[in-house]
């Protein structure tokens, strides 16, 4: 179901853990771009906050422990555990884009997909979104606004991918190597997030991942084959 033979694009993200400063710019940009609701305090206290991308903070080492940041978002696994379990085919895989899709109008709210996801990156709308007027003016019309009962997750800004592909098709050309940029990648100040088509050798992610000793994937041993590569932190050449 998820073989690459017929795919046109293999969208891949590279996260440079050495550069991520945990500033949450990607989190806010994702909310703005994808109409992700902010949950109020009591909903958050009920463990129902929704942030499609989150910066996980781990404490490392003996006290005083230092923090390390790990941006975590839907890994768009090539063997996604969330796909086989959806009874209504709301969580499906795109063979052309190599993405894990969430079809909102199909979702009935089983929440089995979130249960199966080892990265816990799926978010269920337990409540209706609260956008008091005129905050509704800010909603992005290119993205559906989800109500209660629908599962959602990072889509790699599929609306931007589609828009770029439409533009390219209308102009009769191929997509440029770095033409598609999701919201989080676009705003990240230290450029810790990179995005591109791994099938295109000219794209930045292809060049960064070629022969990269630092590249690894999270929970790789589970066999989910995620589409996001993390470059683990480096050591300075300065000797101290």
């Amino acid at each position: 179901m998820a073989d690459a033979t017929q795919a046109e694009h293999k969208w891949t993200m590279v996260v440079d853990l050495d550069k991520c400063t945990g500033c949450q710019a990607c989190v806010v940009a994702c909310h703005a771009e994808n109409n992700v609701p902010i949950r109020n305090k009591s909903e958050v206290q009920a463990n129902r906050a929704q942030h499609w991308i989150r910066i996980e903070r781990y404490w490392v080492g003996d006290p005083p422990a230092k923090a390390r940041f790990l941006p975590m978002l839907c890994q768009h696994c090539n063997r996604a555990p969330c796909e086989p379990v959806c009874p209504v085919y709301a969580s499906v895989h795109s063979q052309r884009e190599h993405l894990n899709l969430q079809v909102y109008n199909r979702c009935v709210g089983t929440r089995y997909c979130n249960n199966n996801c080892p990265y816990v990156v799926r978010y269920f709308n337990f409540y209706d979104p609260y956008f008091p007027a005129p905050l509704t003016e800010q909603l992005n019309p290119d993205v559906t606004v989800r109500t209660a009962g629908i599962m959602e997750k990072c889509t790699f800004c599929i609306q931007r991918i589609n828009r770029a592909e439409q533009q390219a098709r209308t102009e009769g050309r191929d997509l440029g190597p770095d033409e598609v940029i999701p919201a989080c990648v676009q705003t990240c100040p230290p450029s810790a997030l990179l995005f591109g088509d791994l099938l295109n050798p000219e794209s930045r992610v292809s060049k960064v991942l070629a022969d990269n000793q630092r590249a690894l994937r999270v929970l790789e041993h589970l066999g989910t084959e995620p589409a996001i590569y993390y470059l683990k932190g480096g050591k300075s050449y300065v000797r101290f």
Partner: peptide, 8 residues
């Protein structure tokens, strides 16, 4: 055949 063409 791919849902993301219209549903996102």
């Amino acid at each position: 055949t791919e849902c993301q063409i219209c549903h996102y």
